[in-house]
Nucleic acid binder design. Sequence first.
RNA 1: AGGCCUAUGGUGUAAUCGGCAACACUCCAGUUUUUGGUACUGGUAUUUCAGGUUCGAGUCCUGGUGGGCCUGCCA
Length: 594
Amino acid sequence: MEDKNPKSPENLENPEKTAHFVAQAIDEDLDAGRYHQVVTRFPPEPNGFLHIGHAKAICIDFGMASRHGGKVNLRMDDTNPAKEEQAFIDAIQTDVKWLGFEWDTLTYASDCFDQLYDWACELIKAGHAYVDDQTAQEIREGRGDLQTPGTHSPFRDRPVEESLDLFAKMKAGVFEDGAKVLRAKIDMANPNLVMRDPAMYRILKAHHPRTGDTWSIYPMYDWAHGQSDWIEGVTHSLCDLSFEIHRPLYEWFVQRLVDIGQRPAGVEHTPRQIEFARGNITHLMTSKRKLRQLVDGGHVEGWDDPRMPTLSGLRRRGYTPEAIVQFWTEAGVAKRENNIEIAKLENVLRADLNAKAQRRMAVLDPLKVTITNFEAASETFDAVNNPENEADGTRPIVFGPTIYIERADFMEDAPKKFFRLAPGREVRLRYAYWIKCEEVIKNDAGDVVELKCTYDPQTRGGDNPPPDDEGKVRKVKGTIHWVNIDTAVDAQVRLYEHLFSTEDPEAKTENATETGEGAWLANLNPASVAVVAAKVEPALADDVAGVPLQFERHAYFARDPKNTSDGQPVFNRTVTLRDSYKKKAPVHNRKKKG
RNA sequence: AGGCCUAUGGUGUAAUCGGCAACACUCCAGUUUUUGGUACUGGUAUUUCAGGUUCGAGUCCUGGUGGGCCUGCCA
């Protein structure tokens, strides 16, 4: 059968067939001979941590280059020293590498500061830029608005020599912050406000992480970005839709330089900007400014809190880079607004984790069980580490006469569809024996504190017992996990839920207690983490951060690389296993404590 | 309201010369199962509207409507 869908699994690997509109545009450029290679760049501003939204851009930038054997530069867009820090520059590199991408050259917008300054002078000489003495307020008023054309600055037509002189003095630090700006002379009546004589340079006497105090003026994004692309030989400057209206300006600057014979050395082509829609995901919030508010406001532990959508947070949570890349590959690239259900992300994550995770048994809410007819002190069984990968082998697990089971796996007054332990019912202990609940022991308050059970020696290893005299085989519906009281290890387990309980975290809520700016904080999930003291099998004490784990019948977990709790290991819940029982079961079937 | 962008199941995308609207997720039903996991099978559900061109329109044309973005000396 003809396979026409480019997103069917076998085609995801095939670049010829995964052609979203950006890929198509690049292909056409190459076919038409407009470019002879592909060079892209990933240009974060080092003013915060990378998040899953950046990962989409990274996948596109690197994906489009590798598709044609091209190159990718990692460029720190460091044109605003007031906001940028070395710590972010370092973290960005760590995160891009973690995702599995290797850039060709690490560059900085600040590498181009000298060239940018020289070119700005050329533009002034050519009558394309001027120094404006107006205040920010005056410039804003002169810009007009969506319905009204702007008005010319009184300094717009000042002599070239005067602008040149003033610009040199701005650079030399003669003027205070905000006293003057260099503006491109374009069109104050342009319906696109970006084109109404945009600022190219502002005075900013701030210490720059790389250039120190050598500059008193810093280029604006619009002036720096396209020229940086050009200087680096970038062919395709891929960015999100918010820069769409900046494209005319991007092209204007390049064209004016071409017109006056200015070109970066050794670069034949001019760069092309293409925009795509950023990917939004339900329950996730990726506004850098608001993420910062979460950190500064103490709503999370930090940028790498496992509930954060930052790459460092997701890493700590146990997300794999492969899952994140696969997610964005499957999500596709287009230009329309979108809001991808987080279930899609979790589905891709589970698929990756299912293949990789080491299975372990952990009891999160222990209930003691005594097996009254088990005479030996202990008995050892082999447990499979990963049924999806035989090469991961087995590990020994020790069984004994007293164990813990999950409190939720016992129900005194159980409905028929409850396939676990109940008075008189039989269940399989994973890898060990079948047990039958004979007696329920309660404390004075009426809480169940212990179960007395018997085991069937014929079910060793959990196997079905031999058929009876009439050839019938006894069966059990349920298999539950357990840990041996004597060998169990204490651990702290952090059960994470979505940080925001609403699909759209930025939406205003009715029960918002804060008004205005912080209203979205009311969408925070008050139960986004639950910390429990668990009893886990001893093998878990040896598992380290970075190894995907599955606590059987619960969820995927990752050992926290930072925290211990009184020397005990800490495990972060990455994502739960799918649970068709919870969905179908009536509410009264659920575990209820107290 | 000026400009730009955008519109395909509940969600995200595909359909490249105009030729049977499909893939994944979600949801539902079932099979297998020593994880109520995994795997497998089946099902529900789609072209924003009104005209037009055409043997034939998601695709082309005209007009409407919905959504997004834009008035930083942020990026």
